[in-house]
């Protein structure tokens, strides 16, 4: 479904992505982790071309994402994207957030869009909040609406860019549960996340990135039990012991 071939990206002289080559199969759930500044968010943002790349190729469902002939808006509408900061539209209701794109871009009648949106909101457990404004919801609720909004375009692929990093700890679980259910329904997903529990339970494959390179890729069992790269070993031990060890 996704082929990433020798992708390079620079911010000025900073080499953010270095020869990244990867592929994601249909129905696969891939978790990308790594220390901050490792390029994982950059990578996921290049997939729907929120960020340009300088060389290489990214092909999604046969479409060259960074090619000159891609119909960008149609291309993006087939990829759900969930942001760290939710980015719901604050001036319209939760329901309208979920019907805006389907009515405008999928050509649904308002009543159809409404029914679909309510079904999706029900799926993320928020049908009762349909008439609320985003500002009236908790962070966890907002993120679940953001997932419903993305799903409303019926994308075959969902991208998550640190979906739980901006949440209070007690709200992380509700978002991860929605994501897990989505994965179990067979959605192809790429998730940048620090939630190692999610990676272990839900991912088919885990990638570890550092300094713009994918250093390790493995099934979660292997990944956590037998990390090969020293940077990954360090990373895993760092996140297991969040306090610096006394000397």
């Amino acid at each position: 479904m996704i082929q990433i071939e020798k992708v390079n990206k620079w911010y000025g002289s900073y080499h953010a992505l270095v020869d990244v080559t990867e592929s994601v199969a249909k129905g696969e759930v891939v978790v990308v982790c790594g220390p901050s500044g490792s390029g994982k968010s950059t990578l996921i943002r290049t997939l729907n071309r929120l960020e340009p790349i300088q060389s290489g190729r990214i092909v999604i469902d046969g479409v060259d994402a960074h090619g000159p002939r891609v119909k960008l808006n149609a291309f993006r509408s087939h990829i759900g994207f969930v942001f760290q900061q939710f980015n719901l539209f604050p001036h319209i209701t939760v329901l309208e957030n979920c019907t805006l794109a389907p009515t405008r871009l999928r050509g649904l009648k308002p009543s159809e869009a409404r029914d679909e949106a309510l079904a999706l909101l029900d799926r993320v457990g928020l049908a009762a909040k349909a008439r609320a404004y985003p500002g009236e919801l908790s962070g966890g609720q907002q993120q679940r609406v953001a997932i419903a909004r993305a799903l409303a375009m019926r994308p075959p692929l969902m991208l998550f860019d640190e979906p739980t990093s901006a949440l209070d700890p007690e709200m992380v679980g509700e978002v991860l549960l929605v994501m897990r259910d989505l994965a179990r329904d067979g959605m192809t997903m790429v998730c940048v996340t620090h939630e190692m529990g999610f990676a272990r339970d839900v991912a088919d494959r885990v990638l570890f990135m550092d300094e713009g390179k994918v250093l390790e890729r493995a099934a979660p069992g292997e990944f956590f039990a037998r990390p090969e790269h020293p940077r990954l070993q360090q990373f895993l031990s760092d996140i297991r012991t969040p306090f610096p060890q006394a000397a």
């Binding site: 993006r76 980015n87 805006l100």
Partner: peptide
């Protein structure tokens, strides 16, 4: 208005001008 608003509108598939007009 944060650039996240434009980005989320664009990622849904809205054109630049539609993102401006609607969001």
């Amino acid at each position: 208005i944060g650039k996240g608003q434009t980005e989320s509108a664009r990622s849904l598939g809205f054109s630049y001008l539609d993102a401006m007009r609607l969001v």
